[in-house]
């Protein structure tokens, strides 16, 4: 498996900076290279590369997705379904999820939420690994107001 950078690479370094496991090496303006042993197939390099220079784990050319235009997908949690098992938090290679809970001792549930939205690389691993499918991925640009608010966790709207 593993992703691969082809010679269209101009050495801009965007992939190297975003790779959550730091497995891309390369000097500025030189061809970059993926350490195939350590690549986790998260796809972030392929989504970010402005020059169409990344092949995915099946050898297909990755399509750039506009991050600034909020086209990258982010996790939306179904808190009714969620069983607080924290598998999503552990699955996240960017460590951008955390739990939150209310100080109200009647509600003793721990809720996962996107604590560091700018770090999210849209890899979907959280959704993939959630055993009860309580995570749905959606591009922020396509979210309605309630969904956007819910990104800040279950208690954000009540503040």
């Amino acid at each position: 498996m593993a992703y691969k950078i082809i010679d269209r690479c101009v050495g801009c370094g965007m992939c190297r900076k975003i790779c959550p496991v730091a497995c891309i090496a390369g000097r500025p303006r030189k061809l970059h290279e993926v350490d195939r042993q350590r690549c986790i197939d998260c796809g972030a390099c392929g989504r970010i590369c402005p020059h169409g220079a990344v092949l995915d784990h099946l050898g297909r050319l990755c399509e750039r997705i506009r991050r600034r235009a909020l086209q990258w997908e982010k996790p939306l949690f179904d808190y009714e379904r969620c069983m607080s098992c924290s598998a999503c938090i552990d699955a996240c290679p960017a460590n951008c999820l955390a739990v939150t809970y209310s100080q109200d001792t009647q509600d003793r549930k721990a809720y996962p939420y996107l604590a560091d939205p700018t770090a999210c690389i849209a890899c979907q691993f959280c959704a993939l690994e959630c055993p009860v499918d309580a995570v749905a991925m959606k591009a922020e640009a396509d979210m309605d107001e309630t969904q956007k608010k819910s990104l800040d966790g279950p208690f954000a709207s009540s503040v």
Binding site: S84, C85, S86, A87, R108, K109
Partner: peptide
């Protein structure tokens, strides 16, 4: 348990 703030779940545990 009266002063428990939040249940603690180990990794992948639905019970806590």
């Amino acid at each position: 348990t009266d002063t428990m703030v939040v249940k603690y779940h180990c990794y992948s545990c639905p019970l806590g």
